[in-house]
């Protein structure tokens, strides 16, 4: 089984308790319909196991198939600079149809980002470097498509519903 080669670190964004017994990592693409379908299932998992799961999201934009995926990933990293990574992550997945640069700005407004700062930040190389570093860490860990999940560092062979099933059983 493939292993997560880059351990969870300070550059990662997580939800849940920092010391939760289970760390769930998703490598995702904001324009990928399978990731869109996994999004509400992950929410369901987080609601069902609030104390047990720390959820980490890493970017794996397949830009050749999904032309807006990279811009979306950068937008969430820009939102993170204003402490709103998860708000941006959520609103994008909730409005996955019709993604565009304009739509990203509308979402940024809706979650009350400082728009001037946001539009400066999305042009920063450090943010696109972060997204590319996520992508490369995914490749190194054997990510072969999206979404790919890792449970406590080991690649999970299945989708979000399978994950939910596994957590319920254990």
């Amino acid at each position: 089984m493939s292993q997560l080669t880059i351990p969870i670190n300070d550059t990662d964004h997580f939800e849940g308790k920092a010391d939760a017994p289970i760390t769930l990592v998703e490598y995702g693409d904001y324009q990928c319909p399978h990731c869109g379908a996994a999004y509400p299932v992950i929410k369901k998992i987080q609601e069902a196991f609030p104390d047990q799961i720390k959820f980490v999201y890493r970017n794996f934009p397949l830009s050749e198939s999904h032309p807006m995926a990279f811009a979306c990933a950068v937008a969430t990293e820009a939102a993170a600079l204003q402490g709103k990574f998860w708000e941006m992550h959520d609103i994008i997945f909730e409005n996955q149809r019709g993604l565009s640069n304009e739509a990203l700005f509308r979402m940024a407004e809706k979650i009350r980002l400082d728009i001037e700062q946001f539009s400066n930040d999305i042009q920063k190389d450090t943010l696109s470097d972060k997204v590319e570093a996520d992508f490369e860490s995914g490749i190194r860990s054997g990510v072969n498509g999206t979404p790919s999940f890792f449970v406590n560092g080991t690649k999970f062979d299945g989708g979000a519903e399978d994950l939910f099933g596994m957590f319920r059983e254990n």
């Binding site: 050749e64 198939s65 490369e136 072969n144 498509g145």
Partner: peptide, 13 residues
């Protein structure tokens, strides 16, 4: 198709 699509995103690597 997924496999070739993945490689298509990796050409620069």
């Amino acid at each position: 198709s997924d496999q070739m699509g993945l490689y298509n995103n990796m050409l620069k690597y």
